[in-house]
Structure formats: structure tokens, C-alpha cells
Amino acid sequence: MPVSASKAASADLAKHDPVWAAIREEAQRAAAQEPLLASLAHSTVLQHERLEDALSYILAQKLGSDALPALGLREIMEEAFEADPDIGLSVRADLVAVNDRDPACRGFLKPLLFFKGFQSIQVHRVAHWLWHQNRETMAFLLQSRASEAFAVDIHPATRFGRGIMIDHGTGVVIGETAVVDDDVSMLQNVTLGGTGKETGDRHPKIRRGVLIGAGAKVLGNIEIGEYAKIGASSVVLIPVPPHCTAAGVPARLLGDCGCEQPAREMDHALPNAPG
């Protein structure tokens, strides 16, 4: 392709899919800076035309097993992406969320390749699609492999919005009837669980913009209102109103959040806490 045509194609890609264009540029830079990464950059990113193609390849390589060959897994993921374009939009929103909120993140390539919190959410999105296609056994198989590979256990029926960040990921458990709305951030070892042997709608509803600190347990069919904050290691058994902070064991309401959008600002300070 002539240089002028190549530049025009790059500009068109950046205009219509800026996240994918940025990922490709980051992959090219990484390959140039570290020759040992050239093969990785090509196989995971540069040989693919779309972000969805790259993501299906990356996840299939991580989750493939004797019971679930990588090639077949990739075909399932591509089927989901084609059938539900909203998944691709959510993937991009999640990448933007990680890049904006995680101070350890510099760009989009690293979370795509290496951040298991991000990767586990995308596996869940495919499993959730399978769940609603009445392919529950395959959905559970994906959940199981994701749990083994990423140490993140999300029931396929859980409903996720867009712009979700699970930082680190290790030890996160989210139950069947939980709902996680747009722009939520949570850290490692968070549980959104039930309180025992209840049946039916029994898991938390996490509304837009909530920040959940590391090790927090939110239990039962309770609502955590929009832009609320849950302190690290808290056990939350009561509803939390919008824009409020809850912390402690058991958690109690401590006042407002001290910021407008805690999930975006990632400010874990508690009201009246020293320092």
C-alpha cells in the first residue's frame, strides 16, 4: 500500500474506532522497542482487522483447554460479537475505563493483553450472551475456565453495564442475580453475594458510578445507590443511599462520598477518617 494510502487508512480507522487505532499504534511501538515482543504484537493485535478479532484470539489462547479447544472457543466468541454488537461497544468502554482510572495503566494495549480484571469481564460478556441463547452449559464452562485462569468468578446470568473496571481481579465473586450498572469500579476480593440459602432475586444491585474497595462484601438483595462508596474490607448488609459512603463490619453509613464520581476518581478516603 502506498504511504499516502496507508496514512489515509490509519486516519479513517482512528476516526471510526479510536480505541482500536490506539491499540495498533501501541503494539507497533512495543514491537519496535522490544524485538522479542514483535511476534506477540503481531499474533495478538497486528494481524487482526478489528478489536473483536484480537480479543477473541487473546481470550481463546488464555482459556483454551482439552475440554474447550482454543479454536472452537474463538469461534464461539466471534459468534457472540457478531450477533450482539453491543458487546464490542462495552469492550471499548471498559478499556477506556481502565485507562482513565488505573494509575498503573498507560494506554489500551496492556489491559487488553495482560489485565485479568478486564479480560474476565469480557469472558463474562460472552458467557452472558450464551446464557440468554439457552446455552447454559457452555456459559458455565466459560465461567469455570475464567475462574481457573483469572481467579474471578462471575455467574453467567449477572448483568453488567459498560465502563466497568475490576482492578487486579483476584478473588472477585459475583452472584447470579447481581446487577452492576455503568461506570462501576471495584478492586480485588470483592464479593457481591447472597446471605445464605435464599432463592430467587438474592444478590446486590450496584448502581451507576459506585466505587467498591478491596475486600468488601456486599450481601443480599440490597441496592447500593448511584455514586456511592463502599470502604475496603467492609461487610455491607443494608442498602446504601446514592452519594453516601458505607464502611465497617458490619457497615454503617458515614456520610457523603466527598467527591462527585467516586468510581472515576478512585478516591478511597472515608469521611472523618484521619489523614
Rank of each mutant, 00 (worst) to 15 (best):
W131S: 10
G171A: 07
C259G: 00
N189H: 12
D53P: 08
L89V: 11
Q47W: 08
N272P: 00
D183K: 01
V190G: 03
Q28C: 12
L141R: 10
A14E: 11
R135C: 09
N134H: 14
P18L: 10
E34V: 15
V45C: 09
G258C: 08
P241H: 12
G255K: 08
G88H: 01
G64F: 06
T199K: 14
C259T: 10
R74E: 12
G117R: 08
N221D: 13
Q28I: 11
H243D: 12
P18G: 05
C259I: 03
L270H: 07
G175D: 05
E79F: 05
E75P: 02
H42K: 13
D102I: 04
A246Q: 05
E176C: 09
V236G: 08
L71D: 13
D181M: 13
Q261I: 03
I238M: 12
L63I: 05
D182W: 12
F108W: 10
R202W: 11
L192Y: 05
D182F: 06
Q133C: 09
M165G: 07
E226H: 15
R29N: 10
F160I: 07
D182E: 09
F160H: 09
L73R: 02
D12T: 14
R264P: 01
E52T: 15
Q133Y: 07
K205S: 09
E148W: 06
D84T: 11
L59N: 03
T177N: 07
P271F: 02
V236F: 12
G255C: 09
V152K: 04
P85C: 06
A11V: 08
I76V: 14
S120N: 04
G209D: 04
Q261K: 15
L237K: 07
Q28K: 15
S234A: 15
G169E: 02
F115P: 01
K15Y: 13
V249A: 02
K116V: 07
L95I: 10
T158N: 05
L211R: 01
V240N: 04
A31R: 12
G255P: 03
F160D: 00
S90G: 14
K15S: 11
E75W: 03
F115G: 00
D53A: 15
G275Q: 03
R92W: 02
C105D: 04
S56G: 13
R159S: 11
A97Q: 00
A21D: 06
L68G: 09
E49D: 13
T158Q: 07
E34P: 01
D182L: 08
M138R: 12
G194Y: 05
G169S: 09
P274Y: 09
G275K: 04
Q61W: 00
H155F: 09
S234N: 10
L109I: 09
L113S: 09
A11H: 04
L270S: 02
D267K: 00
D12F: 13
V184N: 01
R208H: 15
V210G: 06
S234P: 08
R208K: 15
A21M: 00
T199V: 15
L141D: 08
P242F: 06
R74H: 05
Y227R: 14
G213R: 10
I121R: 02
P156W: 04
C259D: 02
L237E: 03
I76P: 02
Q261C: 06
H128Q: 07
R125P: 06
I222T: 02
E25S: 15
S39V: 12
E148I: 13
I87C: 04
V179N: 07
V184A: 00
